[in-house]
Structures are given as structure tokens and as C-alpha cells.
């Protein structure tokens, strides 16, 4: 079985994210890191391998600018055997549908039995790339999976929380599964794995290499225009108490509650 894991480089959570008003796109300067949600997808792949399924290969796949190589190195240090980096100027400004299409094209060349991805990207927060990719690959798919078991090497038994409680769904492979962050506790990479990550094969591909039609991607190929960025309506900021002396803090909370007749 071959598993591809989709990973993305995102601004570090500790850094303030902002829109560059001149381009209308996310400002990509500043510290960047592997999307934390994707570490759960890599860990899920590792657990399938360690759980006794015959996993020949775990391949990390990303679409992004040159700097995204670091996210791939991180993914490899967490267990991927090699990585694929789709990078091309023509892809800049792709919307969700175009990004999903480009990733699907890249995945097609790998013919994976299973594509795993994170529940959301920290910057895009679209929750949807998996379903777009699956439709292009013509594979069954499910998002928000928090328990994933391989059955008979050909099927997946998936559990997830949906609108009315927990659903258990059987999915035939090849399939695209996005995992929720409660699925596992990702491991930390060993120093040795971090040092060795740069030596693992990294395949850099351009849009033409994987048969991406240029009028389907980038700004021109995107079907949605985003603009008119504005701050949300101002909300009166709440009161803040820093807990230094807990007795005092508690006194203040009780007074606050009492003032509002909540006690």
C-alpha cells in the first residue's frame, strides 16, 4: 500500500497573519512552519504502517513556493520516506478549487492507495481541499476522521462526528481521508530524523510535469475573487484579569458575577 500525505507550509501560529493590501493575498513573509494539523495525518500514516499493514511508501506532497521545502523536510523527519514539491509561478493565487485540482494532478502521478490530509490549514481554514481532491481523483472520501482502521488491506473503517452523533463509515481504497486532530498525538521527530531529512529524495515538479492545464490554476484559473478586506465590527473588549494572587483573582471574579446578578 502506498500512502500520500498532503502537507502545507503555513505562517507560524505565533506570528500575526495579515493580508497584503497590494496583492490581496496572505502576507507570506515571516516565520513559517508545517501546518500543525498535517502532523496528525503523517502520524496516522505511521500508525497504519506500524499497525502491521504493508505500507511500501509514505510520500509527503505539497504545493507551494520554494520555502515550502522546509515543510517537506519536517514531514520527512516525522516519518515520510520521500516527498514531492509542486512549485510553479503559474500556481500563485489559486483558489481552493484550483489548488485541489493541482494537487490531484500531482497525486495522480503517484497512484496512491490512500491520500491523507489534515482537517484544516492554519492559514486558509477551508476544511475542503480533501473533498476537491477526491472528486478529481474519483475516489471516495471522508473528512474529520478520528479513528481509522485498515481492514483486509483494501477497506478503511472510519469513525467521525457528524451532525447527529458519531458515524461509522466503511470506505473502499483508493480513498482520500482528512483526519481530525483528535485522531492521535503526533510524535516528536528524533534529532537523527531531523538531520537525515534533507537527504531523503525530494522530487521537485512544475505544473507542466504533472499535466496541469494552465488555464485551470493561478489567479486566471480561479473562479472566485476575494476582495474588500475589512476588519469585523468592533466589539467592546472584555475585562482581563491576570492571575497573580489567586485569592484576589477569585474575589474579583465573584464580584464581577455578583454585579451581574449571576450568583
Amino acid at each position: 500500500m502506498k500512502i500520500c500525505v498532503l502537507v502545507k507550509e503555513v505562517p507560524d501560529a505565533a506570528v500575526e497573519k495579515r493580508i497584503d493590501p497590494s496583492t490581496g493575498r496572505l502576507d507570506r513573509s515571516g516565520e513559517r512552519n508545517l501546518n500543525p494539523y498535517d502532523t496528525h495525518a503523517i502520524e496516522a500514516a505511521m500508525q497504519i504502517r506500524e499497525g502491521g499493514s504493508d505500507v511500501e511508501e509514505i510520500v509527503a506532497v505539497t504545493m507551494g513556493p520554494e520555502s515550502a521545502v522546509r515543510a517537506l523536510h519536517k514531514a520527512v523527519s516525522l516519518g515520510a520516506d520521500r516527498s514531492v514539491h509542486l512549485s510553479d509561478d503559474s500556481l500563485a493565487g489559486s483558489d481552493v478549487a484550483a489548488t485541489g485540482y493541482a494537487l490531484a494532478k500531482t497525486l495522480q502521478r503517484e497512484s496512491p492507495d490512500l491520500v491523507l490530509l489534515g482537517q484544516q490549514s492554519d492559514d486558509g481554514e477551508c476544511y475542503t481541499i480533501g473533498a476537491v481532491v477526491a472528486d478529481h481523483l474519483q475516489m471516495p472520501s471522508l473528512t474529520q476522521v478520528i479513528k481509522l482502521d485498515v481492514e483486509d488491506g483494501a477497506k478503511l473503517r472510519c469513525e467521525r462526528q457528524a451532525e447527529y452523533g458519531y458515524d461509522t463509515v466503511s470506505v473502499e481504497m483508493p480513498a482520500v481521508i482528512s483526519v481530525g486532530d483528535a485522531i492521535n498525538e503526533p510524535r516528536y521527530p528524533s534529532l537523527k530524523a531531523i538531520m537525515g531529512a534533507k537527504k531523503k529524495p525530494l522530487d521537485a515538479v512544475a505544473a507542466g510535469d504533472v499535466g496541469i492545464e494552465s488555464d485551470h490554476v493561478g489567479e486566471a484559473g480561479s473562479q472566485v475573487q476575494c476582495g474588500d478586506f475589512k476588519p469585523p465590527p468592533e466589539k467592546a473588549g472584555g475585562e482581563i484579569i491576570e492571575d497573580e494572587d489567586t485569592d484576589e483573582t477569585v474575589e474579583k471574579i465573584v464580584a464581577w458575577l455578583d454585579e451581574r446578578k449571576l450568583l
Binding site: 478549487a97 481541499i129 473528512t143
Partner: peptide
């Protein structure tokens, strides 16, 4: 708003090559 709407909407956007906005 709901889980299924995200999945259906994204699949439709891919199928019809349409623009999609969530949340």
C-alpha cells in the same frame, strides 16, 4: 452550516469548476 455542506460544496466546486466560499 454543517459538516456535510462543506464536503458536498467542495465536491460540487470540483465537479462544476465553480468558485466556492466556506464559513
Amino acid at each position: 452550516g454543517g459538516l456535510l455542506g462543506f464536503e458536498i460544496g467542495a465536491g460540487l466546486a470540483a465537479r462544476l469548476r465553480a468558485g466556492v466560499t466556506m464559513e
